[in-house]
Design a protein around this nucleic acid. Structure first.
Ligand code: MN
Ligand code: MN
Ligand code: ZN
Ligand code: ZN
Lengths: 148, 148
DNA sequence: CAAAAACTTAGAATCATTCTAAGAAGAGGG
DNA sequence: CCCTCTTCTTAGAATGATTCTAAGTTTTTG
């Protein structure tokens, strides 16, 4: 897989350059801390993770970096009710399943055809830039088989 | 249409009674103010409308009444990003179209088949109590034909 | 190097919502 | 009718996530 391997830090460097922004250690660290796991951390959770590596970083900077990452389209903001915003590094169009028992959030891939069907529900002349879909429910009770 | 006509205030009285709650003038007024229009007002907007009729009502009471109406399933809370919660009297399953230019919110009816298709995307063992769908985009630019 | 621009930071401010504590209103039993 | 218990309403304080402010740092440019 030689040179075709893409490093996420390269993505970041590239996107920041494209937007005329600087690639700072804080931005790098905040971005990596979101990529590291497939959970959907809040700003406070990211702050806690990042602080372990860079104890001087501030919560304000975490918020600033997150805003930058969203502008650069490397991270997506996710909202459940009015709870703290969560941040998601999965850039393919997907829905979110919010487990009301555990509070855990899973990504649900959305087939192109389903998005098309949703767009067909709109009245003449309406265009949707994005469609936000959130499931609220419960995940499997039993421990999952032996996949993953 | 004789006696079959349902008055919304009867709905309210019934639901409150079912839940062992009292039917107060404040609850009645808050409910009517939401039913009166198909917009999706915020608590502050409802407060303003209701205050015109009952100048002594408090914002806390509006929030309390809204919570009660939601418990009684007569009103639905709607969230866009982290903006103020909006309240919707449309009880059939529907999505929301949020016009990013005007800020106006429209209801979009959801066919049963589409909800079924969405539920089929969930992994084994996952159940969704509810699915929240929000479109973000722009409505028709031109003035609508001559309907409505 | 000097100056300008972009960033980071701590703490204050904001804003929607919830909480608290006290008073008002309604239901029921005598 | 009173009395008492419970439910409601109310004003204002508290909360919590996020944004703003103002001052220092770092980076880039000339
Ligand atoms: Mn400071
Ligand atoms: Mn008070
Ligand atoms: Zn996600
Ligand atoms: Zn609605």
């Amino acid at each position: 897989m030689a040179h075709t391997t893409t490093h996420h830090s390269d993505d970041l460097a590239q996107r920041l350059a494209d937007s005329g922004l600087r690639n700072t250690p804080q931005r790098e660290l905040v971005y990596q801390s979101i990529l590291a796991r497939r959970d959907h951390p809040t700003a406070e959770e990211i702050f806690a993770r990042v602080k372990a590596e860079m104890p001087t970083i501030s919560l304000a900077t975490v918020y600033n970096c997150l805003e930058t990452l969203i502008e650069c389209r490397l991270v997506r903001a996710v909202h459940f009710e009015r709870a703290s915003t969560r941040y998601c590094p999965n850039l393919v169009p997907h829905a979110h399943f919010h487990d009301s028992k555990t509070g855990v959030t899973h990504d649900i891939d959305l087939p192109e055809e389903l998005l098309a069907a949703l767009k067909k529900l709109l009245p003449e002349g309406y265009t949707a830039d994005m469609i936000d879909i959130t499931y609220h429910g419960r995940g499997a009770e039993k421990p999952e088989k032996l996949k993953d």
